[in-house]
Simulated scan of single mutants.
Amino acid sequence: MITAFFPGSFDPMTNGHLSILRKAIASFERVVVGIGVHAAKTPMFSFETRAVLIRDSLQAAGLDAGIDIVSFDGLVVEAAEEAGASVLVRGLRDGTDLDYEMQMAGMNGAMKPAITTVFLPASPQTRPITATLVRQIAGMGGDVSAFVPEPVLAALKNR
């Protein structure tokens, strides 16, 4: 069984994350979502809330997949290894992402050669979406309904 590890902050979960997660679920027998939790950062949503929003977003999209969700605060490749993953899933929006992710894949491969990085392209409609922009737009009262799954939109409105 091939296990894939899909890391990110997911703060908040976006339609872009959902697009990549949908592709990962279709491609691998087991998918583990790793939510980065860093003591130096103050997230919009707690780890627990982010985990619930990921599960609710998958269910709302008709992807009631049996994924695992874990938190991590160190190196992604260490978390992937702890999760039993042999594949690290990274989403790409554009060439800038590719340049950065290629460097990361090289460093991760040097540290953990048994873990292969796989790049999945963002769908055209989700390429401009970033969690940072969603947080900024939502924080200023803007409409982010086109950028996030319905459960996330509801959670943002309740903040």
Rank of each mutant, 00 (worst) to 15 (best):
I35A: 12
G36N: 08
V37Q: 12
H38G: 00
A39Y: 00
A39K: 03
A39M: 07
A40R: 01
F45R: 02
F45D: 04
F45M: 02
S46V: 00
F47P: 04
F47Y: 13
T49Q: 11
T49C: 05
A51Y: 08
A51I: 01
A51D: 14
I54R: 01
R55T: 14
D56Q: 13
D56V: 07
D56C: 06
S57Y: 09
Q59V: 13
A60R: 08
A60Y: 04
A61G: 13
A61P: 10
G62F: 09
L63V: 07
A65S: 13
G66F: 01
I67S: 08
I69K: 04
I69W: 02
F72E: 06
F72P: 08
G74D: 13
L75D: 11
V76T: 07
V76D: 02
V76I: 03
A79N: 06
A80D: 04
A80W: 04
E82I: 03
A83T: 01
S86Q: 15
S86C: 03
V87D: 06
L88T: 10
V89G: 08
R90F: 04
R90D: 06
L92P: 15
L92K: 13
L92E: 02
L92C: 08
R93M: 11
R93E: 14
D94H: 05
G95A: 14
G95T: 11
G95V: 10
G95N: 12
L98Y: 15
L98S: 12
D99C: 03
D99T: 09
Y100F: 11
E101D: 11
E101R: 09
E101K: 08
M102P: 00
M102R: 11
G106M: 07
G106R: 05
G106H: 08
G106I: 02
M107Q: 12
M107S: 12
M107L: 15
M107Y: 05
N108I: 07
N108D: 06
G109F: 02
G109D: 04
P113Y: 05
A114V: 09
T117A: 05
T117D: 02
F119Y: 08
F119G: 10
L120I: 10
P121K: 01
P121C: 15
A122C: 08
A122R: 07
